[in-house]
């Protein structure tokens, strides 16, 4: 066997667990789901090809429109709020103060609480009668605190607030990014008389812009797939006035409650394309604002 072919064979052999897994467990099912999205497939009977019927149905499906709208609202609220807060917290935690490690731990610890457990805790925190939030508001004189999870007006706000509970992961990534910014840049800025806010705007934010881009893209992906928290907190209900019924919940219902695998697959592919398009758009918009060192 020639050395090049031998190397290729050896490489393929050692990477076989990955590419076999990729082909069998990811690429294969994706291709099948694409085919199924053009079929009527109630799981127990063979799929019947129906052309674009499932995709056409999406156009007229009011619940689909509502789920998309809710997801857009959630993503466009949770991502900016989460990003700004995470960056600010990371900057604070990057200051050399006593107890720095303790404060960092405090921010990170909530992220290791399982999602379902956190959901249950927040359900109680936001209980309109006995919850900590409502009780505290009553103590300071608010006679009618919000109904939080029970109110169509407050349910989405509540979910965004709960999503901030898991801010520890991006904060850690931002912290790592902050520590990568060369100290000389700050020294140069100070010599030029830059104030703290100007240093933040002209040194810190450009310095961590690749990290911000990464976290925003991850935020888009996770926001468009939000499922466990609302599913848990509204006890599988669509939430007050369906304001917390999200894309993935509708997809799950179609697949496993309504047994419409074809329609669910169409939903999954549309979701995939939306996330792909949004990611591409963010990359495009970030060309001038993200600074890679050495480029």
């Amino acid at each position: 066997m020639r050395p090049a072919r031998h190397s290729l064979f050896t490489g393929l052999l050692w990477t076989a667990p990955w590419w076999l897994g990729f082909l069998l467990l990811l690429a294969g099912p994706m291709v099948i789901s694409l085919y199924i999205s053009f079929c009527d497939y109630p799981l127990l009977q063979p799929p019947v090809f129906v052309g674009l019927a499932n995709y056409q149905q999406l156009v007229h499906d009011a619940v689909f429109h509502k789920a998309v709208w809710n997801t857009v609202i959630y993503a466009s609220t949770a991502i900016p709020v989460g990003t700004v807060l995470a960056v600010l917290l990371a900057i604070l935690l990057n200051q050399r103060v006593r107890g720095q490690a303790f404060f960092r731990a405090c921010i990170f610890v909530p992220t290791i609480v399982p999602l379902v457990a956190a959901g249950v805790v927040w359900m109680w925190m936001m209980n309109p009668e006995y919850g900590l939030l409502s009780t505290s508001l009553r103590t300071v004189g608010v006679a009618q605190p919000p109904l939080w999870l029970e109110s169509p007006r407050w349910a989405m706000v509540s979910l965004v607030l709960v999503s901030l509970w898991f801010i520890g992961s991006p904060v850690v990534i931002y912290l790592a990014g902050l520590q990568e910014i060369p100290e000389e840049l700050y020294e140069a800025a100070k010599l030029d008389g830059a104030s703290a806010s100007r240093q933040l705007w002209h040194v810190t934010l450009p310095g961590i812009s690749p990290v911000i881009l990464f976290n925003v893209i991850m935020g888009i992906i996770t926001s468009w797939q939000v499922f466990a928290l609302p599913y848990m907190m509204w006890r599988t209900r669509p939430g007050p006035d369906r304001v917390t019924y999200f894309y993935t919940m509708y997809l799950f219902d179609n697949a496993f409650n309504y047994l419409k695998m074809g329609y669910a697959s169409a939903l999954a592919w549309v979701q995939f394309l939306i996330i792909l398009a949004l990611t591409g758009l963010v990359f495009l918009l970030s060309r001038r604002t993200v600074h890679y060192r050495g480029l």
Partner: peptide, 21 residues
Amino acid sequence: PTWAEAWTEMLYLLETVMREA
């Protein structure tokens, strides 16, 4: 045969009325 979807819609209907949405 489509009771699961009808059930979800009925739940939504009751929620809508209960919350005066």
